[in-house]
Amino acid sequence: MDTSAFRAWVHEAARLIADNAENLTRLDAAIGDGDHGVNLRRGFQAADEMLDKAEAETPGAVLQTVGRALISKTGGASGPLYGTGFRQAGKALADVTEVDVAKLGSALEAAFNGIQQLGAAHEGDKTMLDALGPAVTAYQVAAEGGADIAGATRAAAEAAERGLAETVPMLARKGRASYLGERTIGHEDPGAASTVLLMRALATVTAGEAP
């Protein structure tokens, strides 16, 4: 993946999030505070616009610009969390100009670790990590099995979807949803749902299917 592919990923992610903002907000209204879709749409729109203006010339610089924009504009907990994820992924890519399948895997892992550390959450707490964790693992398994970037990101997106489905019976232990306790059981986690969109956007772009 080159710099323009990473820009395309962010653009596609912003589009998917805008299209699904209402659904994200609806999920968040059920077990959180009902602003996830609105906030993320604002954050990714800002990231997309900032990229248009920025001179980010490497994939790493693109991701770091996005991270900074998400932190600056999103609000809520998801801004710092996703922003940190993108920044850590960008740092992991350093200044490579062409990202291969292994390098993208290490960037995804860095994103996961950054989010986990900042949010002090674990898989099973009903958070975005419950989609991102399986996605990273599936990506690495596919990559080790010889898949190319398109194949590995498709595996990651599918695993994220399964991870999202598995958040339904979970009890939320982090964020504002945690105050609902058992009432969170039976709902998809909105953070895991937005992570699915990010992974889906990545798979779409690497498959060359982005509009």
Binding site: D33, D35, N39, I71, K73, G75, G76, P80
Partner: peptide, 11 residues
């Protein structure tokens, strides 16, 4: 002030 019921941003 952040948006309604949304935390302010670091900037």
């Amino acid at each position: 002030p952040g948006e309604v019921f949304t935390s302010p941003v670091p900037d």
